[in-house]
């Protein structure tokens, strides 16, 4: 488990490898299976998730500790976070479109998808549940999105090879993707023994 007492480096490794958000925690699987059919899409999605996740953690932290707690509105946590993320995604899209056109071309179409990506919302909930401080929350957000990129890019490259492989007719498409994911998940499970976290 992750807690505030851990060193930032351990938090990063734990979030990225040991508790990989896609393969071990089973969060954000829709994008994992939906977008991993091409390497280009998965790289774009990976960059977009990293970008939004770090920003969302940076905004959700003050929203929770300086707005919801003093006003005793913790009940509205879910609503506050999802509205924050939706607004943030809109603002980022406008900002990137105007000031960073090359980046917009690379990840523009993935940004609207991010609003309903569970990974982002899960990060904002988990930094509160783990009671991390601001700096460690940022490290955690980086670690989770690093793990997201790693897993989705690896998976996309494997899926491109599977297209050429002879697969039993009934297992074509989604079922073989699940079996591949299970083998990858098995490999990531090995990190648990490595660090003992």
């Amino acid at each position: 488990m992750i807690e505030n007492g851990m060193s930032p480096f351990l938090i990063f490794l734990s979030a990225c490898l040991v508790n990989n958000i896609l393969l071990i925690r089973f969060i954000a699987l829709c994008s994992f299976f939906g977008l991993s059919t091409s390497l280009k899409d998965s790289i774009g999605m990976g960059i977009a998730v990293t970008f939004v996740a770090v920003m969302a953690a940076a905004v959700a932290y003050p929203v929770y500790y300086y707005l919801l707690i003093p006003l005793k509105l913790v009940v509205l946590r879910t609503m506050a976070f999802i509205l924050t993320i939706a607004t943030l995604v809109q603002l980022e899209e406008m900002f990137i479109k105007k000031y960073l056109p090359p980046l917009y071309r690379a990840m523009g179409i993935y940004l609207p998808l991010i609003t309903t990506n569970c990974a982002i919302l899960a990060i904002t909930f988990l930094i509160i549940d783990y009671q991390l401080n601001f700096f460690k929350s940022m490290v955690y957000a980086f670690g989770v999105s690093g793990g997201y990129c790693l897993a989705i890019i690896l998976f996309a490259t494997i899926r491109e090879r599977i297209l050429l492989a002879p697969v039993p007719k009934s297992l074509e498409g989604a079922p073989i993707a699940f079996f591949t994911a299970s083998l990858m998940s098995l490999a990531f499970l090995g990190f648990k023994g490595l660090f003992g976290l």
């Binding site: 009934s170 079922p175 993707a177 699940f178 079996f179 994911a181 299970s182 083998l183 998940s185 499970l189």
Partner: peptide, 24 residues
């Protein structure tokens, strides 16, 4: 393994494969 994360993927993959086989 079945209650660890890989087991989840294996189970749903098998179920979908069986369903495809049946439909075919």
């Amino acid at each position: 393994i079945m209650i660890l994360p890989p087991g989840g993927f294996i189970t749903i993959g098998t179920l979908m494969g069986l369903m495809n086989y049946w439909n075919r």
